[in-house]
């Protein structure tokens, strides 16, 4: 890649610049700043769309009473039961059980707080079923 070909396709970096290696006019390698690259942006946006549609699908199930609100928070944070069980210090089967509305309702306050802390929210927020799915506000 020549230095003057280094892509500057701003999309995802929030003004951040990454550096990459490129060849200058004399054929030597130099570091050049890049604002992003279209193909990488496309692939990344695609990945976010997948996450977004998954979160929406989970929220529908939560609202329909098929899953507990914990499932919604889990999906928002791109987690699965295995990953969440690691953070919660529980067995995977326990987390899977808590994804069902019935067992979730019977959870003790201490356990709810434990889950809520992982997601950096309060226990009340964890139990609330939101109107629409939001993943933009995770980035606090």
């Amino acid at each position: 890649m020549q230095k003057n070909e280094v892509p500057q396709d701003e999309a995802l970096f929030n003004g951040m610049r990454e550096v990459c290696y490129a060849v200058d006019d004399s054929g030597r390698y130099v570091l050049a700043e890049s604002a992003g690259w279209e193909p990488a942006n496309i692939a990344n946006i695609q990945a976010w769309e997948v996450i977004r549609s998954e979160v929406t699908a989970v929220l529908c199930k939560v609202r329909a009473g098929e899953l507990s609100p914990l499932a919604y928070q889990m999906a928002r944070h791109q987690m699965n039961a295995k990953l969440l069980s690691g953070y919660a210090g529980l067995f995977c089967w326990q987390v899977r059980r808590h994804l069902k509305p019935g067992p979730f309702r019977k959870l003790k306050a201490a356990q709810l707080t434990r889950y809520a802390t992982i997601f950096k929210i309060s226990a009340e927020e964890l139990c609330r079923i939101p109107e629409s799915s939001e993943i933009g506000d995770i980035q606090r």
Binding site: A11, L12, F13, N14, A47, Q78, L83, I138, Q139
Partner: peptide, 8 residues
């Protein structure tokens, strides 16, 4: 980290 790059 830029939010858009925060994956696990």
């Amino acid at each position: 980290f830029p939010p858009a790059l925060r994956f696990h």
